[in-house]
Nucleic acid binder design. Sequence first.
RNA 1: CGGGAAGUAGCUCAGCCUGGUAGAGCACUACGUUCGGGACGUAGGGGCCGGAGGUUCGAAUCCUCUCUUCCCGACCA
Length: 465
Amino acid sequence: MRRCPGNGHGQGRAQFPTFRRATPDRRKIDAAQSVVPADPEGNARRGEDRVASPDAARGPCAPVRGRHLYMAAGRVPRAAQDRADRARGAGPGRCTGSADADDPVRGTLAEIGALRITDRHEREMLYGPTAEEVITDIVANEITSYRDLPKNLYNIQWKFRDEVRPRFGVMRGREFLMKDNYSFDLDYEGARHSYNKMFVAYLRTYARMGLKAIPMAADTGPIGGDLSHEFIILADTGESAVFCDRALLEMTPPGDDVDYDNDLQPTVDTWTAHYAATDDKHDPGACPISGDRLVTARGIEVGHIFYFGKKYSEPLGATVQGPDGQTITLEMGSYGIGVSRLVGAIIEASHDDNGIVWPEYGSPWLVGLINLKVDDGDCADACEKIYSDLRAAGVETLYDDRDERAGAKFADMDLVGIPWQLTVGPRGIKDGKIEVKHRGTGEKSEIALDGLADWIAARASGAAS
RNA sequence: CGGGAAGUAGCUCAGCCUGGUAGAGCACUACGUUCGGGACGUAGGGGCCGGAGGUUCGAAUCCUCUCUUCCCGACCA
């Protein structure tokens, strides 16, 4: 991101998008910029994702064949939001920031350091710095038996911070989408197992998004606790310097055969056995590994997990009754993923000279459909059918029906980086065939229209979640 | 809150040092050719050079002030 020439001056820094300039090709950069802005009027046009000819952007009266790419680009963060909403079920998040300070339960929030403020009506309020307190309070009120444990609750919401200096687009803004998990266990062993499960799950989650995330021992910071790891991905444009053992780069994340009920400690141990530290923890004078094993790079933090025991459960009274009638104070941990910044991180880690290379996990669309000749009846009919079939199958699709040159459409589709490209042109459609291209590998093949349903079914079950 | 840069065409920039009334690429308009991997030719349109003072016969250019933006640091996912 740092080298992408955009609207920046001097150093050539730019906002999103974040792939670096590989060639000084202004056309790509111009196109990239057109993809960026959240759509100015796209809200009214939600639901269909088509690429438009520039004509469409001129005014409401202009004939609309499709919609300009940037109209659809607001979908990237929106898709993340939608996914989050879907995962959460309907309705707004339950966890909000402020609470009445006079509430006896909330009162204990002050004891653990929550910020006390007075609002314009001179009411005393407490600002919850994190959702830990709220979640803990919910559990304290709702969970009363050891039989309900262990429990793992999650909270997905946009968070807001008074960021001193917002920069790098979605990487560091005043608002960001965050997913947090909170584990509740009866004892330390259980809590440690919960921690390990999330540790492994996060390794796999990042791997599925095409990211090599390296767990690094981290400060527990304001959340507290005595066990914590940051998940950092390496990118030239990372926000901070990181140092780690070369061996970590060669390790393979756990595969599909992980059994989360087994003891995961050995797996965690192998990942934490090697040296890895961010610059604020790295002391060049006291580095335990030799220079030839030490990798110096830049990293982006994409997740942070904590074990913090009874820090919140104790003061907030999150207890259950055990089998012997004893009161048990719960052991807790929390596990966060920066969802919105992941969008930027993925692009940093996955791009080439032609643009973004979205992994299937994380891509705003799974399929890009290109109509090479929009005024050809056969092509248009085929595309409409394919488009509706894909949508019916739940496959998120961007349909490029602009009246543009073929080359421009291919290049734009590569730039946007959608994993699968379906190309419909007069040459192939005569024989009932369309072209399939995979963005990541560049491999192209022809498939028959008849067989498309199977292809769609495979895609729909493969990557959608 | 400190430090450093930049403001000139829709966009990215050159011109400024050595004052003489503004250029390039892309984008845009028209016509023709082209049309399955970001086409080409010809002809065009478009800028009171961020703002205000000052120096000068003359200021984008030199001086002063001012506004805005960007970058770096502290902080943080």
